[in-house]
Simulated scan of single mutants.
Amino acid sequence: MAKQKQKNYDPDILSRLFNNLMLSGRLLFDRRVGNGAKLIPLLVALYILSPIDLLPDVLLPFGIMDDLGALVFGLQMFIHNAPPEVVAEYRGQIPGEGKRKRKAAPEHDVIEGKYEVKDE
């Protein structure tokens, strides 16, 4: 039996980060999410923008990784502290207000007919 080479990276990590950013943006403006939870992304943004870091940005790869780690951790904490039903709604797991879908017209409201345009 040959050993399969295991990949050490996740190719979908950028798409998950983007999805979590979009979800956090929607949750930030949702009235059903408490103010305590909404404080988390604001504190993370303040940490990223502040000149005081755990690892200074002068050490380029490490300073950027520090900010990126704070961003990912803050997003996860915010999503975890938001109401689960609201998160599930925005992720499309349950129908509701989160995804604004157009309702299909019921069949009984459709009126079929013919028309004709006459120039006068």
Score class of each variant (00 low, 15 high):
residue 21 L to S: 07
residue 37 A to N: 08
residue 74 G to R: 08
residue 91 R to K: 15
residue 111 I to H: 13
residue 29 F to D: 11
residue 31 R to L: 03
residue 39 L to W: 05
residue 33 V to S: 01
residue 119 D to N: 10
residue 3 K to C: 04
residue 50 S to K: 06
residue 20 N to T: 08
residue 90 Y to D: 01
residue 117 V to L: 11
residue 61 P to F: 12
residue 101 K to L: 12
residue 97 E to L: 09
residue 87 V to K: 02
residue 72 V to N: 07
residue 17 L to Y: 13
residue 43 L to D: 04
residue 111 I to R: 13
residue 91 R to F: 01
residue 99 K to Y: 05
residue 52 I to C: 04
residue 53 D to M: 11
residue 112 E to K: 06
residue 109 D to E: 14
residue 91 R to G: 06
residue 1 M to Y: 02
residue 29 F to H: 06
residue 46 L to Y: 14
residue 63 G to I: 09
residue 71 L to T: 10
residue 50 S to Y: 09
residue 63 G to W: 08
residue 55 L to I: 15
residue 104 A to Y: 03
residue 33 V to K: 00
residue 52 I to K: 12
residue 82 A to P: 03
residue 100 R to E: 10
residue 84 P to H: 15
residue 60 L to Y: 11
residue 20 N to A: 13
residue 35 N to K: 15
residue 58 V to N: 03
residue 2 A to C: 00
residue 105 A to M: 06
residue 75 L to Q: 09
residue 57 D to R: 10
residue 105 A to I: 13
residue 75 L to I: 13
residue 82 A to W: 02
residue 115 Y to V: 11
residue 93 Q to Y: 12
residue 36 G to H: 10
residue 76 Q to P: 02
residue 4 Q to Y: 15
residue 31 R to I: 02
residue 54 L to W: 12
residue 118 K to H: 06
residue 51 P to D: 14
residue 26 R to Q: 06
